[in-house]
Amino acid sequence: MNRRRSLPLVLLPVMCLGAAGAVVAQEDHSHHGQHPPVEEREPTPTAEQPVEHTAMDHSTMDHSAMDHDPVDHEAMGHAMPDGPAPAEPITPIPPLTDADRAAAFPELHHAMHHDSGINSFVLFNRLEGWDADHGRAFAWEGQGWIGTDVNRLWFRTEGEREDSATHSADLELLYGRGVTAWWDVVAGVRQEFQPAGRTWAAIGVQGLAPYMFETQATLYVDEDGRVEANVEVEYELLLTNRLVLQPLVEVNFAARDDVERGVGAGLSTAEAGLRLRYEFTRKFAPYVGLAHERAFGGTADLGRASGEPEADTRWVVGLRTWF
């Protein structure tokens, strides 16, 4: 019995050494055919992948090693001035000479701003009708010219008919000379057909007054020495590109009474009108308007004696055209 128990005791160390070697060999084979683990690294930022500053640990950065020197503006060509800005520019401006002024504002000669060609223009400012006390009435006012920009032959005409009878009509032929860019001096004759056949000498001015007022002032003298004057002012107010409001004021004066024509001395008559036209084209513009006419002084007295009203207000419908 002692021999059987001593045998396992002798083999026990050998069996322990064998088990340890098997464990070592198993660990070596477990790594066979595998690569050693690679250390993970942070990806390098690229243009498509911006740097995530919030994930950076700024507490470990050495700010003292960073270069925070101020920019040298003088080395960059940006010298900073000391004190206030200079009163004179760095590059001096040469003084203005008479030659510079002459080059900037050349003298305009006659041929530089006038056309020597022959042109013409005809305008009927008023072709209108209304209902009068004794029937329908019709009035016209027109003017035109032919010539150059400086020298022109003008005509003017106006008149009024009521109940198939002509109450007033006249025609003027005038020579006009442009004295400024906006004004002409005119002189010629006026033939009056109604109410009395008279011939008048005429002289006056016409043109565009300041603030765009069309102005016409004419003095008339007949063969008997009677003197009369007419002043007409009108304005065009553009409400839209086609809708135009045209106020007009016309006054007549006489130096002495003319019973045959029903005209008294002083301010004889005045007319104020307001016409609203629509320009289908610039040459064709129908209108509606309101006109008021009044006689004064001796003219009003002569009118009452012949049964004429002192004042007259009427609605008118008409056409303005030119060619």
Rank of each mutant, 00 (worst) to 15 (best):
D258M: 09
L237H: 13
V221K: 10
L9E: 05
V249E: 01
A75T: 09
V185W: 08
G83L: 12
S164W: 06
A209Q: 03
A137Y: 04
G77N: 10
A165P: 02
A300H: 08
L9P: 02
V38E: 13
N230A: 09
N125S: 14
N2H: 15
S164K: 12
F280A: 03
Y278M: 00
T60K: 13
F105H: 13
P94D: 13
G117D: 12
E42D: 09
L219E: 02
D69E: 12
V259L: 08
G262A: 08
V23R: 15
A272Q: 09
G33K: 10
L208Y: 11
L274W: 10
L267D: 02
R161Q: 12
A19I: 04
H32A: 10
E260W: 01
I93R: 15
A300E: 12
H109R: 15
T180L: 05
F155S: 10
G273W: 05
Y235Q: 08
I203Y: 09
A254H: 11
S6W: 14
V185Q: 03
I90E: 15
A65D: 07
T218N: 08
W140F: 02
D257S: 13
A75S: 15
G142W: 09
L274S: 05
A202V: 03
S268W: 05
A20I: 07
R261A: 09
G297E: 00
V221A: 05
L96G: 08
A132N: 13
I93H: 15
G266L: 02
F284T: 01
R161W: 07
L208A: 05
R277H: 01
V221G: 01
R177C: 09
T46E: 07
A87P: 15
L219D: 02
T180M: 06
G83Y: 12
P37A: 08
P309T: 05
P8W: 04
H78R: 14
A85F: 15
A300Y: 04
L9C: 05
P195I: 01
E52I: 06
G159T: 03
N125H: 10
A270H: 11
L171V: 11
G176W: 04
T313G: 03
L171M: 12
R190C: 01
V150K: 04
P13R: 11
H58N: 07
V10D: 11
A217M: 03
L245A: 08
G197L: 02
E293H: 15
